[in-house]
């Protein structure tokens, strides 16, 4: 019997130091995530230099823990996978340096993974039987992409954001509303108490004929609304504003996904990325997708955040396609895009 394919995945692109062991692409033997959020909170966002320093402190203990929890040793591994972009360059370099060292020490293939692809493959960990053709909406603090998969491992980009990512808009709006960091969960929570029609906000590009997105105008509209209220010395209806802002984002995302699903005549829709945890987005998309007789999948919560399990999974599927090991000169690509 062939040896089971075990990937050690490493993810350090933002403020989570994560290492996982993945068996045959979809079985998570371990997925250790050390969050640095406590060190960044007082700054109202991720500070790149602090993130890099924390990754240096955390990466080696997290590697040990991932191997121990999986009950495997270096000799059992088939490959090492690492996120090489997009993300914060200092953090990416910590993961890449560690991955190269392990690959060299144990003569293993080094698989370079695009972080955004990782988020997509998080779905295959939760639902190993998923089959293309399908479309996938990837939304997080750094990206908003709509993808079409005709077969596994290869995809076409239908549309993406022209300016801010959806998650970035959540974080910025949360910051001006002084809701703390991270902004997504804070707005999601406050929105439950508010009226989503309470504040009239735009829905940029919702009717455009393409599949592209734009969120900076919406963010600006929220800022203008707040400034206007402050000038008139009126109280800001925070819950209503949070609910209305969230509703705008959800409306835009849902409209584009449904348009793509109809145009491409697919049966399956995937949701991935940090914003895939947004409850309102999940709820509305579920309703719309069911109306059309389609199926919606999103990864379990732990796999929606940045984690190394998804990197190990993406690496496995990539390796099955091309068996291509990255060179030891691999560098970080902070602005790496899909496609």
């Amino acid at each position: 019997m062939a040896k089971e394919f075990l990937v050690l995945g490493i993810e350090t692109s933002c403020d989570e130091t994560s290492v996982a062991v993945i068996k045959e692409g979809t079985q998570v033997l371990s997925n250790i995530i050390a969050s640095q959020i406590d060190w960044h909170r007082k700054f109202g966002g991720v500070v790149p230099e602090i993130a890099s320093r924390k990754h240096v402190e955390l990466i080696n203990p997290v590697i040990s823990e991932a191997l121990a929890e999986a009950g495997v040793s270096y000799q059992d591994l088939s490959a090492v996978a690492v996120t090489y972009g997009p993300g914060l360059v200092g953090g990416l370099l910590v993961g890449i340096s560690a991955a190269k060292a392990i690959a060299y020490a144990h003569n293993l293939p080094l698989i370079a993974v695009n972080h955004i692809e990782g988020h997509i493959y998080a779905n295959f960990i939760s639902y190993p039987r998923l089959e293309p053709p399908l479309i996938c909406l990837t939304v997080s603090g750094g990206h908003t992409d709509l993808l079409y998969f005709e077969r596994l491992g290869s995809y076409q980009i239908l549309g993406r954001t022209k300016d801010d990512a959806a998650g970035e808009a959540f974080d910025k709006v949360a910051r001006v509303m002084e809701l703390g960091y991270p902004g997504g969960p804070a707005i999601d929570k406050l929105a439950k108490e508010g009226d989503p029609t309470g504040v009239d906000l735009p829905r940029p590009m919702i009717d455009s004929p393409d599949y592209d997105f734009s969120f900076s105008g919406l963010k600006t509209a929220v800022l203008n609304y707040i400034n206007h209220k402050k000038q008139k010395q009126e109280e800001i209806p925070k819950a209503d504003l949070a609910a209305s802002f969230q509703q705008s984002v959800v409306d835009i995302l849902v409209t584009k996904v449904i348009k793509a699903a109809k145009d491409k005549e697919i049966k399956t829709v995937l949701l991935s990325g940090g914003v895939a945890s947004n409850k309102q987005l999940r709820k509305e998309l579920t309703i719309k997708v069911e109306e059309l007789g389609l199926e919606l999948y999103y990864p379990e919560s732990q796999l929606c955040t940045d984690n190394a399990a998804m990197i190990g999974s993406a690496a496995y599927f990539k390796w099955q396609l091309d068996q291509q090991s990255a060179p030891y000169s691999l560098n970080a690509e902070p602005n790496l895009r899909l496609g």
């Binding site: 240096v56 990466i59 080696n60 590697i63 060292a101 060299y104």
Partner: peptide
């Protein structure tokens, strides 16, 4: 950081 992480991870895995 690149040197330190490379050295530490080599030492750890060997």
């Amino acid at each position: 950081r690149i040197g330190v992480v490379t050295a530490k991870t080599l030492a750890q895995s060997l």
